[in-house]
Design a protein around this nucleic acid. Structure first.
Length: 953
RNA sequence: GCGAGGGUAGCCAAGCCUGGAAACGGCGGCGGACUCAAGAUCCGCUCCUGUAGAGGUCCAAGGGUUCAAAUCCCUUCCCUCGCACCA
């Protein structure tokens, strides 16, 4: 019967759906409950091959644990919180070309369905049903479908509400100011998806150095606050409009636009007077740190729309400032026009504040001079500046007048220096974007500061508790452990609410919604409750209900019995044994997951393990739905079958390694599976027999060899699966054993009943090992072979009765001999009629015994051998041979060597003579070297134990 | 810059932790068997040299440790990913 994956797979899908095969419920207390999760998909688009492995790896592990007898729960749900889906719907409604192309071309959304996607939940629902669910079912994922939910469900919101109320009570939430993107036209915060320009823009935190001018503060914005001692002058744009304004009760002088920005950034601002930039030029301002008075000079390069519109000049360390100063000095006329005394300008000299290797006293001068730059419009200036800034930041050491910071490298102390200045009242802070940002409505977007709730991931005791979670957790691969610790150390407060989006409202202020990374930290617990929670009215799911559920009957005055009932269910499944996730989520989602479990649940419910998965490429390149560079699971399953897709994904790399979906490789996998299928069906009997154990025929040497290899396969596959090494496991069960089978078919008369029995036994075992990977094919064949699906059969155990080291070693000799004869045939280009094989003489054998006795040490072997008078005579020859044999034995364990010592080589080769005659179409004669054999090629003397001499005629 | 992971024969890729095989396997290529033929299947070969199972030169580059290094150490070059308030 031909391999027809579509037919086979469809039948199993139906069967699994009809029987609810993977629905898991709590069983007996002594059951082994295994709970496996994976981040729920975010259906802002369709599922493509990049997602497929993410869900297939945990499925394979789940199937493995089930075969090992565990009660396994593998659920899924849908993350619809936040703004991406809303953004996608907006773009669709506006008829954006790019968005329509992604939907129509990349994800094949039918034309008449597009309008259903015009509401957020309609959009989400389409991709959930038509892509994710359909794809997951096609792939045969062993999911308990009764437990699915979305994060927009009202009961889920009740659960998140409980979580955030609890966190607030425990002081893990705090209120504070936070920079947000704010559209000045729409007068509201916007997200990255709302932007027309500047999606890449970053928040830059400027330090404002509070220079003084009479009674007013002139805040100079800088990213390098430590250069404050090197300021020689200030610059304003003489043509721009500045204002005198009251800012938080003080008088400030800033550009007109800066005043507006300061107002957005939580300052009280009222403008009292407009001032022309030119009127400020020529006046002097006082440096708050040094107390020095420096002049304000005119400069056209000052941008009044950036930061405060007033900049300080540090000519010793800024190439721009250095050149601007040179230009000012060279243009007396211009200075005079603005009422600046040219002599005062001429007197300005750069003031160095740090030393940096590779530059002289005045690094900026060196930098521009060595690059041959003379004008501030030189295109090379930017690169030179960047280079200098970098060198100064990473290697610049501050001069002595920096007090406690003297001698320190900028990189290490900039932040501390800044804070000291802020505390002393000399510095302030202002945010600005790194580039221009424009809203889709056309309005300018500025940085605003808004009151926000934060999760206090910076709390030291919370960090410590989370580190204990990591300590007790299994990290796969192990080298990710440090990354969690690193993230915990570095994590700061996290703003956990947004102004809009789908999801749960902040319980005490429904203007805000809890953002996606914050509403998904403990939802694994919700899986254990989801189906039965449906029976409980939403109104009953209050704080008390969940307190009773998660903290027990004693936690509340009047516990709801339904909550206590659910508590048992939760406790049965929790903790999560393995969460399968992706590398880039360590620095946020996964660590949040650990934080919240550490805080909210007892140690016994903490995450037990996380498996990190690598990412997927398509034909060597990153997948991208916007470029259409994706493969949809449906297409691939249609073309190759789900088993092929699964096997390729699991077999081409270990879960934590990156993999590359390549059509030619996938095709080859499909061919391999087909070949396997064809071979297997030849062994399927007319009537399925449940077992052949009762009528096992007498086995021959080769049969025992294959069965012994099979035992080795079982133990290797099992060990690999325990470590979630799906590549090693599938490689071993499939390809490696295939190698053994190839040899077996060559060696054995496979029509014998014993061979048939052996092949069927091996097939049955292998189907069970492969069932997690290719469940459709493995179950089908196993059922045809034995009457029950592979997944109903237990995971194979190693049968010590069938493990036979001696047989394996014997067969290895025959393989070696065959290969050697082949080599000689190839090299000589002859076609022998006679193959003579000479087994090493007895004394050589004795040397091997000495090696086995003394171990891999030539000296020890020699003293052992020399005690034998017969060997002593042969002195040098024994020494040479001992060296050779020690080499041979070095890597082998003692049991193997001892077994080798008992091997009767002559008998082994003679038993294989018939095979060798077939193989080479020649007469094969086996002789003892020391029995005076016919030796036309004078080869017999070359024989060595386990390496017989060969002569071809 | 910081943190992580890499660079292995035409391509993909194992081995590296726990030094001791020109280095698993696949794809592609070449030759052969079977066949009317094609496909499938099977068997060889696929760094260089070689009419005897061998020798030579190799695992980004350069040094070092060692009797012995793809494997350990150092230096350099190159690639990928993350560095947040975004899922």
């Amino acid at each position: 019967m031909d391999y027809d994956p579509q037919d086979i797979e469809e039948r199993w899908r139906e069967r699994w759906a009809e029987t609810g095969r993977y629905e898991a419920d709590p069983g007996d207390a002594d059951d082994d409950a295994t709970f496996i999760t994976v981040p729920y998909p975010y259906p802002s688009g369709g599922m493509h091959m990049g997602h497929v492995r993410t869900y297939t790896v945990p499925d394979v592990y789940a199937r493995y644990r089930r075969q090992r007898g565990d009660n396994v729960l593998f659920p899924i749900a849908w993350h619809v919180t936040g703004t991406p889906i809303i953004g996608a719907v907006e773009r669709l409604k506006k008829g954006e070309k790019e968005q329509l192309s992604v939907l129509r071309d990349t994800y094949d959304v039918p034309e008449d369905t597009l309008q259903d996607l015009e509401t957020p939940m309609g959009y989400a629902r389409y991709f959930i049903e038509e892509h994710y669910k359909r794809g997951m079912k096609s792939l045969g994922l062993s999911i308990d479908w009764r437990r699915e939910f979305t994060t927009n469900d009202e009961r889920y919101s009740k659960f998140v509400t409980w979580q955030y109320e609890t966190l607030r009570d425990r002081d893990r939430l705090e209120k504070g100011l936070h920079p947000v993107k704010y559209c000045t036209n729409e007068e509201q915060p916007v997200t990255t998806h709302d932007l027309l320009e500047g999606e890449e823009a970053e928040y830059q935190e400027y330090t404002l150095i509070r220079f003084g001018l009479d009674d007013a503060v002139v805040p100079m914005a800088t990213l390098r606050p430590e250069t404050v001692r090197g300021v020689t002058n200030a610059y304003v744009d003489p043509d721009a409009t500045y204002v005198r304004a009251t800012v938080d009760g003080e008088t400030w002088l800033v550009s007109e636009t800066a005043a507006e920005k300061l107002r957005l950034q939580a300052h009280e601002v009222s403008v009292t007077e407009h001032v022309a930039g030119a009127d400020l030029v020529g006046r002097s301002v006082t440096n708050p740190v040094t107390g020095d008075a420096v002049p304000i000079l005119p400069a056209a390069f000052v941008d009044p729309d950036n930061a405060t519109g007033v900049v300080m000049s540090v000519p010793a360390h800024s190439p721009d400032d250095y050149l601007a100063l040179q230009e000012a000095k060279a243009d007396d006329e211009r200075m005079e026009r603005y009422g600046v005394d040219p002599d005062a300008v001429a007197a300005i000299e750069p003031v160095p504040i740090l030393d940096v290797e590779g530059y002289g006293d005045v690094p900026a001068r060196d930098a521009v001079e060595s690059a041959g730059i003379t004008a501030s419009d030189d295109p090379e200036l930017e690169a030179v500046t960047k280079e200098l800034y970098n060198r100064e930041f990473h290697g610049g050491r501050l001069h002595d007048d920096y007090g406690e910071f003297a001698g320190e490298v900028i990189e290490d102390v900039r932040e501390a220096y800044r804070e000291t200045g802020v505390e002393a009242g000399n510095f302030d802070t202002m945010y600005e974007f790194s580039e221009e940002v424009v809203c889709r409505c056309g309005g300018a977007v500025e940085v605003a500061e808004q009151d926000t709730w934060f999760l206090s991931y910076n709390d030291e005791d919370w960090k410590q508790a989370t580190k204990r979670v990591v300590e007790n957790m299994e990290c796969i691969p192990e080298n990710t452990r440090g990354e969690y610790d690193h993230t915990i150390d570095w994590l700061n407060e996290w703003p956990c609410i947004r102004n809009y989006g789908l999801g749960t409202r902040l319980p005490w202020d429904d203007d805000f919604v809890i953002e996606p990374l914050s509403d998904s930290t403990i939802y694994m617990a919700y899986y254990t409750l989801a189906p039965r929670l449906q029976e409980i009215p939403v109104g009953d799911l209050d704080r008390e209900f969940f307190d009773a559920l998660f903290y027990g009957a004693d936690a509340v005055d009047d516990p709801d019995p339904r909550a206590l009932d659910l508590r048992e269910e939760w406790q049965y499944w929790y903790p999560v044994d393995y969460r399968f996730s992706a590398n880039d989520l360590i620095s946020n989602h996964l660590t949040f997951y650990l934080f919240h479990h550490a805080e909210l649940f007892a140690e016994s419910e903490w995450p037990a393990g996380i498996v990190i998965m690598g990412m997927g490429l398509l034909e060597g390149q990153k997948m991208s739905s916007s470029k259409g560079h994706v493969v949809l699971p449906d297409e691939a399953i249609q073309a190759y079958g789900a088993d092929t897709v699964r096997f390729f994904l699991l077999n081409s790399a270990e879960p934590w390694q990156d993999y590359d979906w390549r059509a030619d490789q996938v095709e080859s996998v499909r061919d391999q599976l087909e070949r396997f299928w064809n071979r297997a069906t030849e062994l399927v009997p007319e009537e399925p027999a449940s077992t052949f154990e009762d009528d096992r025929p007498a086995l021959e040497h080769v049969d025992r060899w294959l069965l012994s290899k099979l035992q080795r396969t079982i133990s290797e596959v099992t060990e690999a699966m325990e470590g979630a090494e799906t590549r090693t496991a599938s490689q071993t069960a499939f390809y490696d054993f295939e190698e053994s089978l190839r040899w077996y078919r060559r060696r054995a008369d496979v029509d014998r009943p014993a061979a048939q029995w052996t092949l069927r036994h091996a097939l049955e075992t292998r189907l069970r090992l492969l069932a997690p990977f290719v469940p459709f094919m493995a179950n089908e064949l196993h059922e045809r072979l034995t009457g029950r699906p592979a997944e109903e059969a237990p995971w194979p155990d190693v049968d010590p009765e069938l493990t036979d080291r001696t047989v394996e070693l014997q067969e290895a000799r025959i393989e070696q001999l065959t290969e050697d004869v082949h080599d000689i045939v190839d090299v000589t280009g002859t076609d022998p009629d006679t193959v003579r094989v000479y087994v090493a003489a007895d004394w050589k054998r004795a040397v091997f015994e000495a090696v086995a006795e003394a171990g891999p040490d030539v000296g020890a072997v020699m003293s052992e051998a020399m005690s034998d008078p017969a060997l002593r005579e042969r002195g040098d020859a024994v020494n040479d041979l001992a060296g050779e044999l020690v080499e041979l034995v070095r890597d082998l364990d003692e049991t193997t060597v001892d077994t080798m010592a008992t091997l009767d080589e002559r008998a082994v080769y003679e038993a294989a003579a018939a095979f060798l005659e077939r193989e080479f179409d020649a007469t094969v004669d086996v002789y003892d070297e020391d029995a005076d054999p016919p030796d036309p090629g004078e080869k017999a003397g070359d024989a060595v134990p386990f390496r017989p001499a060969i002569h071809l005629e």
